[in-house]
């Protein structure tokens, strides 16, 4: 074996991470999303002037894992808090990291109005079709017929409504510069997700308006599946219900070359 040196290095843990091991369940793609953000901040050399806003949900402890400044927002209020930070400190990069219970349910008002105002923020939205932290209850993004602890017979759309597609919904607002949906279920899609996160941060760095990346994610524990089967579930059931794609790319954002 060749002696290990810096020239041989292909990949190592990004500098944007602290040394703390995450509290996420084994195989949870929250970790992948965290890692992509840390890699993008490292590539763009933004670690020293980034402020993250952590939500309530599984990612409530996100502030332990990123080597950037972080604040913890009340449930669903991350976009409101981020608005204040960005307006007071416009030279900083401000991003929120929110799950579907936080962003699409209790925080629906905050996210819609932050997008409508065209706040110069980046939102990373993790869609795993349930409330992971509290025990897998039904979320606004739960698929029709999907069993959760609060819809044990499967989500009945007659009484419990249909899933909300956030990326499509927010893309109709004029203040939005970049709004896309990506998935984290295989290496190709993880690479595409990283590129989208990079574009979202570039959008903010250039002051082109609100940017959001929705990431289809897994919840192996609450879905009752192995991590590998969870990725297959995302591919087979979530991607058809939440189509991947670019829902809004403003003219200025389309010119960003990465």
């Amino acid at each position: 074996m060749v002696a290990t040196n810096a020239n041989n290095l292909v990949y190592e843990r990004p500098e944007g991470f602290t040394d703390t091991p995450t509290h996420y369940c084994p195989g949870c793609t929250h970790g992948v999303a965290h890692r992509l953000i840390a890699e993008v901040l490292e590539e763009m050399d933004l670690i020293d002037r980034t402020i993250g806003v952590a939500p309530v949900g599984c990612s409530v402890f996100a502030y332990n894992y990123f080597d950037t400044d972080f604040v913890e927002a009340p449930h669903g209020r991350a976009p409101a808090m981020a608005t204040g930070i960005k307006r007071v400190l416009p030279d900083r990069i401000v991003f929120t990291y929110q799950g579907d219970g936080d962003l699409a349910s209790i925080g629906m008002g905050e996210i819609v109005h932050a997008a409508a105002r065209g706040e110069n923020l980046t939102v990373i939205f993790i869609n795993n079709a349930n409330y992971g932290m509290t025990g897998g209850q039904m979320a606004p993004t739960t698929l029709p017929g999907m069993k959760t602890t609060s819809s044990p017979n499967g989500r009945d759309v007659e009484t419990q409504g249909f899933p909300i597609r956030m990326a499509e919904m927010l893309s109709t607002l004029d203040g939005v510069g970049y709004c896309v949906r990506r998935s984290l279920h295989d290496p190709k899609n993880i690479r595409l997700a990283k590129k989208a996160i990079r574009t979202a941060f570039e959008t903010q760095a250039r002051g082109l308006g609100f940017s959001m990346v929705e990431l289809l994610s897994t919840c192996p524990t609450n879905w009752g599946m192995t991590p590998v089967d969870s990725l297959k579930f995302v591919e087979q059931h979530m991607v058809p219900a939440f189509p991947l794609g670019d829902y809004k790319v403003a003219a200025g954002v389309a010119q960003i070359k990465i």
Binding site: V2, N8, V10, Y11, R13, T22, H30, G31, I190
Partner: peptide
């Protein structure tokens, strides 16, 4: 082969990848 796909999918950034030059 040092392709780093394991590191790409690792949720905990636990893998460091090296490749012989």
């Amino acid at each position: 082969t040092g392709c780093a796909i394991c590191a790409l999918v690792c949720p905990d950034a636990a893998i460091t990848v090296y490749r012989e030059i």
